[in-house]
Design a protein around this nucleic acid. Structure first.
Lengths: 196, 196
DNA sequence: ATTATTCTTGACAGTAATGTCAATCTTGAC
DNA sequence: GTCAAGATTGACATTACTGTCAAGAATAAT
């Protein structure tokens, strides 16, 4: 291939992700992306064509990392520990950065009616992947037998609830309060006694 | 008073609310507001000074109506009915309009890091009011004795969870799925037997 | 070393939105 | 009816962003 791209795509996408996380898709301009990545605006147009395309490319990194993290967190010997680890992982992701960067998928989902259909669809599909990933982990009998709801419903519940947590984080910026709410979540989803 | 305002403020705020709901605070321009309300942009600047001020004024209508609705919905003889009515009310608010208008407070909360401090603070305070309102309703003994969590925690849980529902609604636009998740919510928060 | 291809860059025209202001119009109070 | 406070309006200057393009630079393949 002649005329080789002169920037490191992975690094650029990482920077772009930071911008999208902090400003949101709609409020991010190509100028913002050019400044943050150090890549000329014209080059970005040439390489990706549009802001949405950059977002979708960057989102793949985010999506992969997030799902890996969730899968790893849920690898625990019992339901209580698994759900605690899951919530810890989600909260750590929210609080990370200064100012805290929040949750990209939640933010984008919230404004997804004004985004391109391709973006909305990607977010929808990703939330489904997240649900499926959680469900698959919870299906292990030694986890499932302690859950108040069946794995599928628990997974869906967790996806919805953590989206709510991400919204609350934006407003409160208070880790303690989020952890309190999360402990209610676990208390409500995990059965104390193995029978019943 | 001379030089009387020539528009009906309540009507204008209602229109403004519609715009904010559909486009979000950040993506709404003064031009959008002028077009939707029929009030000249200059007049809006003269009367309110800024987009944020218009938002805050319009938000008061929204806040009042929402809290009234929640209070009314929770006036029920038992916990299961009360929570069902609450969720129905929230979901009805989300689905209303075409395209569905979603939840203004959730949407604004999600982008609240990029808004003026006054807006973020108003949203924060309102979420607290919502929590307090729910808690007050749930404190009645014949409701509270069926709740898995104490009223305060239940209220906080409901606020967080419904913010999550509002996010999911933006993505799925599917009332059925939201109702399924909501039935899990009630199942998990309300005890079946009055003892234990 | 040359070449063909692709990337980079600065420039440009066009659109959208902002915030302000002076001129003009309205209307309640006297 | 006059008047003064305040509302409306169109215009203006500015700023921000978009999308495109031609000229130039870089480089893998020959």
């Amino acid at each position: 291939m002649v005329g080789t791209r002169q920037f490191d795509e992975a690094a650029v996408m990482q920077r772009a992700l930071d911008v999208f996380r902090h400003k949101g898709l709609a409020s991010t301009s190509m100028i913002d992306l050019a400044l943050a990545t150090g890549v000329h605006r014209g080059s970005l147009y040439n390489a990706y064509g549009s802001k949405d395309a950059i977002f979708l490319t960057a989102f793949e990194q985010y999506a992969r990392d997030y799902l890996c993290g969730v899968r790893a967190a849920l690898e625990q010997p019992d339901a209580h520990t698994a759900l605690s680890a899951f919530v810890d992982h989600v909260l750590a992701g929210l609080a990370c950065g200064s100012p805290a960067r929040g949750c990209l998928s939640t933010r984008t989902a919230a404004e997804s009616q004004e985004t391109a259909p391709a973006v909305r669809e990607r977010i929808r599909a990703w939330l489904q992947e997240l649900e499926d990933t959680i469900e698959a982990s919870l299906r292990q009998p030694f986890l499932a037998d302690r859950l108040v709801l069946p794995p599928r419903e628990t997974a869906r519940f967790l996806v919805t609830f953590t989206r709510g947590l991400a919204v609350m984080e934006r407003v409160h910026q208070d880790d303690t309060q989020l952890r309190e709410i999360s402990s209610s979540l676990i208390r409500v989803l995990v059965r104390q006694d193995p029978a019943a």
